[in-house]
Simulated assay, not measured.
Amino acid sequence: MRKLIMGIVEFREKMLPQYAKQFSKLALAQTPDALFITCSDSRVVPDLLASTHPGDLFTMRNVGNLIPPATAEGASTGDLSEASAIEYAVLVLKVANIVVCGHSECGAMKAVHTRNAKLKAPNLDRWLYHANNAAFRLEHEGPLDDRLKPHDQLSQLNVLVQLEHLMTYPIVHQQVTAGALVLSGWWFDIATGDMYAYERTSRSFEVIDRAMAERMIARLASRAR
């Protein structure tokens, strides 16, 4: 806690002068380009990994980067917090992109994979139910990358399942179909610091290096025309 408190002081004294004008503008409105959905894990820091600044990302974090699917009427089958963030991002902020980002060594994915019943956490058990489809796919269809540890194989598949859950929300489905919204699946390897993006053509997560980034940006630009 001391590190957290002193970090606030350091920001106030050293960084705030650089951001003062930006915060002044952001106080009036925000126009983020993307909704970034990722895990609560302390090792995953979106603004650091993407070199973004205040106002760039609308971020939603929870255990396991899970998105409870919606009913045909658009009502969440799980916690309202996630559904509210999705609605706000799409309807009010009008983001053009939604990214679901999983990561390696995810505690949530380890719990789902081992089905550890010893941990007395009934709320966590109910929450992790939303990753069961990913576990089913891993068991019956196999991993995207068999070189990874089983819980990391699950983590990658979980990203794809949560993207499918996103598409159950009518507002998301409508915007994607209209070409106004793009969904992307990313995966962060903590050990190497590399970020990967899912490529449908290769059915694999590929590292986002400069060449990959240029291809991704070109695709986004072609969709915007």
Score class of each variant (00 low, 15 high):
Ala131His: 00
Ala131Lys: 01
Ala131Met: 07
Ala131Asp: 02
Ala131Arg: 05
Asn132Phe: 11
Asn132Ala: 13
Asn133Lys: 14
Asn133Thr: 14
Asn133Phe: 10
Ala134Trp: 01
Ala134Ser: 04
Ala135Lys: 13
Ala135Tyr: 13
Ala135Val: 03
Phe136His: 14
Phe136Glu: 14
Phe136Ser: 08
Phe136Lys: 15
Phe136Thr: 12
Arg137Asp: 10
Arg137His: 12
Arg137Pro: 04
Arg137Phe: 11
Arg137Thr: 12
Arg137Ile: 10
Arg137Ala: 10
Arg137Ser: 14
Leu138Phe: 03
Leu138Asn: 03
Leu138Pro: 00
Leu138Gln: 02
Glu139Lys: 15
Glu139Pro: 03
Glu139Asn: 14
Glu139Gly: 08
Glu139His: 13
Glu139Asp: 12
His140Glu: 13
Glu141Ala: 15
Glu141Asn: 15
Glu141Asp: 15
Glu141Tyr: 14
Glu141Gly: 10
Glu141Pro: 05
Gly142Lys: 12
Gly142Gln: 11
Gly142Phe: 06
Pro143Val: 09
Pro143Ile: 06
Pro143Trp: 08
Pro143Thr: 05
Pro143Leu: 07
Pro143Arg: 07
Pro143Gly: 11
Leu144Asp: 10
Leu144Ser: 08
Leu144Phe: 10
Leu144Pro: 06
Asp145Val: 13
Asp145Met: 11
Asp146Cys: 13
Asp146Glu: 15
Asp146Asn: 15
Asp146His: 14
Asp146Pro: 15
Asp146Lys: 15
Arg147Ala: 15
Arg147His: 14
Leu148Ala: 11
Leu148Asn: 08
Leu148Trp: 09
Lys149Pro: 07
Lys149Ala: 14
Lys149Ile: 09
Lys149Leu: 14
Lys149Trp: 04
Lys149Tyr: 12
Pro150Thr: 10
Pro150Lys: 08
Pro150Met: 10
Pro150Arg: 06
His151Arg: 03
His151Gln: 07
His151Phe: 07
His151Tyr: 07
His151Lys: 02
His151Met: 03
Asp152Pro: 06
Asp152Tyr: 08
Gln153Met: 11
Gln153Asp: 08
Gln153Ile: 07
Gln153Lys: 12
Leu154Thr: 06
Leu154Glu: 01
Leu154His: 03
Ser155Glu: 02
Ser155Ile: 05
Ser155Cys: 08
Ser155Lys: 03
Ser155Asn: 09
Ser155Trp: 00
Gln156Met: 11
Gln156Ala: 02
Gln156Ile: 07
Gln156Asp: 04
Gln156Phe: 07
Leu157Met: 04
Leu157Ser: 01
Leu157Val: 05
Leu157Phe: 01
Leu157Cys: 06
Asn158Asp: 09
Asn158Leu: 02
Asn158Ile: 00
Val159Asp: 00
Val159Lys: 02
Leu160Pro: 04
Leu160Lys: 00
Val161Glu: 11
Val161Tyr: 02
Val161Arg: 01
Gln162Glu: 09
Gln162Gly: 08
Gln162Pro: 05
Gln162Trp: 04
Leu163Tyr: 08
Leu163Thr: 06
Leu163Met: 12
Glu164Asp: 15
Glu164Trp: 05
Glu164Arg: 09
Glu164Thr: 04
Glu164Asn: 08
His165Asp: 02
His165Thr: 07
His165Tyr: 08
Leu166Ser: 04
Leu166Cys: 02
Leu166Glu: 01
Met167Glu: 10
Met167Tyr: 04
Met167Ala: 06
Thr168Phe: 03
Thr168Val: 06
Thr168Tyr: 05
Tyr169Trp: 10
Tyr169Asp: 03
Tyr169Gly: 02
Tyr169Lys: 02
Tyr169Ser: 01
Pro170Glu: 09
Ile171Leu: 15
Ile171Ser: 10
Ile171Thr: 14
Ile171His: 11
